[in-house]
Design a protein around this nucleic acid. Sequence first.
DNA 1: ATAGGGTTAG
Length: 883
Amino acid sequence: MRVIPSSLLSHVRGLIRRGPSSRWYVVPALSRTNITISHSEQVKEGTFDYKSLELNEIGVLRVLNSMKDDPYLALSFLKRIEGNVALPSVQAYATVIRIVCGWGLDQKLDTFLVELVRKGDAGRGFSVMELLNAIGEMEQSLVLLIRVSTALVKAYANLEMFEEAIDIFFRTYHSLGRAPDIKALNFLLNRMIASGRTDMVVGVFWEIERLGLDADAHTYVLVVQALCRNDDKEGVDKLLIRLLNSETRNPCVFYLNFIEGLCLNQMASMAYLLLQPLREVNILVDKSDLGIAYRRVVRGLCNEMRIEDAEKAFLDMEEHGIDPDVYVYSAIIEGHRKTMNIPKALDIFNKMVKKRTRINCVIVSSILQCCCQMGNFSGAYVLFKECRELNIPLDRVCYNVAFDALGKLGKVEEAIELFREMTGKGIAPDVINYTTLIGGCCLQGKCSDAFDLMIEMDGSGKSPDIVIYNVLAGGLARNGLAQEALETLKLMEDRGVKPTYVTQNMVIEGLIVAGKLDEAEAFYESLEHKSRENDASMVKSYCEAGCLDQAFERCIRLEFPLPKSVYFTLFTSLCSEKDHISKAQDLLDRMWELGVKPEKSMYGKLIGAWCRVNNVRKARQFFEILVTKEIIPDLFTYTIMINTYCRLNELKQAYALFQDMKRRDVKPDVVTYTVLLNSNPELDMKREMEAFDVKPDVVLYTIMINRYCKLNDVKKAYALFKDMKRREIVPDVVTYTVLLKNNPELDLTREMKAFDVKPDVFYYTVLIDWQCKIGDLKEAKGIFDQMIESGVDPDAAPYTALIAGCCKMGNLKEAKMIFDLMIESGLKPDFVSYTTLIAGFRRNGFVRKAFTLMKEMLEKGIKPTQASLSAVHYAKSKAKGLR
DNA sequence: ATAGGGTTAG
């Protein structure tokens, strides 16, 4: 942007067209207008009342000049003649402007000039430059001329005619030797930023610098803002350096304003950056000034949610001997609260208490909010009572948080009691207080109490706002009072508070959650303007109420897209219900049709859902669809599918998918290898894992140890165990279980204690099982008792192990006893327990008993589990291998 | 002078 300086104004002085013209004006009577204009006593409205005037140009000027004591009259007189055959002359405008300006009516001047500029050259019959010249010709006062230029710059800025505004600004400077008011320039720069013309801002600024014109702190703030929007880091640096080296008349005031401006415009970080050098070069030497700056910056950083930076600045501030005031503490606490770092917020509060910093009710309400945000409503109330004990003056905000907490705890009566206490203390409640109480009442189904409060508030002369109506209508709906909810909508409308889609949605959601589906549908149908938000609300509410079919049908038939979050909610619900997974997939198709890009995590979710129900075929089909859309599933999705293939013993497919993922540059992790190695004892992945830099973890080690144990290669298993500990991978209870399963003579109890590994049911079961296998039933039972003693609750497995042991020893009576004991202790025998006992009976010749038991099992609907089946499968394959 | 509370949606 190049600004061409010009001194046109002085050149054209004297060239002004003047003199009489043949134009005639008809001026209608002023009294016919509604505008009350005259503030003056001398010129009465009635002056022109008797008839229309016919005036020539000179006459107009004469009239206008006679109105120099009444700018409003002059303005309206001009307006009158504007509407007529001939346009007012440039002199007429110049005269009026002089009058208005002379009276110091800057705002009037501003609006007048905006209108004038808007007309355009053709609309008014002269150019703005001609107007300026005309004023310059009549007027000797520099101040007045500057004032007109200033207003003109603002007018152009208002109309986003930036080139013209710049032109006037610099022309004024060059011809009058003084620039328009800095405020007009700032206004202009501000508008330029708002319209994204940041380049222009920078251009104008450097021209101002070049000419040595004064800019104020606000100007610099605007320029920094523009430079930041341009991503011009160098420019910012250049500007800041230039600022720090400049001679400013009152540097302290300037920099405090500058810092203030930066903070007000979300540039607190830069303000902080500036603070250090300013301190070092002793510009902000005064402790109080430095304190003002620091406190402002910390608050600014908090406002921008840069809480870490704020804390840094806070410490820095304390190091320089500046005490934070209550506002700084408040900002930091709020910063932590809003970023959900509640412990940190409470921590700051405790520090304040420890330092005996005075605590006021604002801090208290922040802290109470913190408790509530953590869901600790009773804690909030306790704290409130403590503060009350300490005689900290508490206000209606504080009380509000406290009785809101009571309401959320379901204690509405107490909440209302607290509210009465507050009003009793002379604290006048506001609409928010009532809203909180009404919300609390509705939450407890006390709708009539809610009505009473509404009436009470009405009586106190406070007018209900949209929120309180929303809460009431939604609350009524949620309690199934459809009729009353709708009446509330009517009532609010009658009282001039228009229900919004939020109101409607609260009613919709309330009704649906209350199970009033027909009423909700009817209400939806009754809406004159159904907004997208209403549809979204219907779908979401059906999801919330668990009506997935309704939610799905409604969502899928819409011809326009809903917000992504709606699809996400519905999709997630559908995925988690095993009979709705294919609908989840339909929903994705619909999203694609409507041009809504699904969240990437949704693909993985769907595949995961299919895998969870072992429908790996469907998972794979969808997987292939993704691939055609060039969507590559992530590591987790691949691993889930591989795991499912493994679980279903489709090892070839699992391995193929594993190769596929590597081909697509999806790097496997330790879980992927674990999954593969777990079900594929032939695989050796050691080298590959090293190549991918995947380090085995405790799970993988355990699997490998288990593998050697199963092959009865105790030496290798133990070597691996040692290797794992050497790598500082701490074994867990599974590792020990696996080791002990085949090598019960190992005594690892002490080591387990040292690693703080607690035995679990599996561990004990293995030990019991072993003892049974070697025929020491007594020891097995001893271990069982030990397990109970150590507080581990047995499940069916240890009982079954004992049953198996008894059967093996031919002690069927005891086996049956243990079986019954298990049922007595509240456990349900599973497929394995039954088959163990049945096999025992049969093997020992009690065929009839075996048969009865089998019948019982089938009657109870006990079926083999996946785990038991794969155990069978595994046993079979192992038997084959050994053969 | 500067700060904190009620509905939704996120």
